[in-house]
Amino acid sequence: MTATTPGGQARPVSSDGEVLRCEHITKNYGVVTALTDVNLRLGRGEVLGLIGDNGAGKSTLLKILCGFQPPTSGRIILEGQPIVLKSVDHARSLGIDAVYQDLALVNQLTVFQNMFLNREKVRWPLVRNQVMRKEAREHLDEMGVHIPSVNVPVAQLSGGQRQAVAVARSVFSDPKILLLDEPLAAMGVKEGAIILDLITRLKREGNVSIIIIAHNYAHVLEVCDRINLIQGGQITLDKRTDETSAEELTDLVVAEYRRALEERQRSA
């Protein structure tokens, strides 16, 4: 499987101000089509909100962008260069990092071990716990993430703290692009504030472009510059945040739902 369409020409992309672009991304799982001809662009330093209902294809798109799975067809262009992501590690080496919905934290390991998961500092054959402990501590302080101790297993942290550790970990390697899958899911107001603060902080620093996937988008609207609505595997709306509102987005989602319902009733 490759990420290039047979017909896709390598036309030059104005990389100025644009860090990532997806062209005609399609993903099929057997006979099920999860994404159809998705086109998406992400500006440098921009925070893009990717919203849509359950099963619309948000997470599928994220998993393609972070190298977890390849698209059936279509291509990804990073800073003007078409790329084929071979693995999560490969994507990470190109500066694309993701925070998954389940956070990819290992409960039994400590905060610092999780921060360095699969990126351990090693003086062969041993891992360098002292160095990792110190760097994890410094990095979390820098990010303004408050954790009682980096030696605590992540099982002991609250939901917000866990999410914050996962986000802090993903910006550890100084990525160009950060993908956040449902960062506010199942989180209280206070917990969510930790994450929104963190995102705002990253945005202010301006080194990283962010795509936030959200199911309940009311919260993320305040940090996003632009919103893409994804419905039935396609992007159906692309607007600047200040040109739209939670009401408009809700109406669109509801309208889509009604349409689908009617169709189902008709065919029944």
Binding site: Y100, D102, Q108, L109, L117, N118, E120, L126
Partner: peptide, 28 residues
């Protein structure tokens, strides 16, 4: 004991058992 507690192989073994999907997502 050293392999389990102080090497990548040991930490990754714990990760695979503790969170299989998460370990995969972390690129293990």
């Amino acid at each position: 004991h050293i392999v389990l507690t102080r090497t990548r192989w040991g930490l990754h073994t714990v990760s695979v058992g503790g969170n299989l999907l998460g370990a995969r997502e972390a690129g293990i």
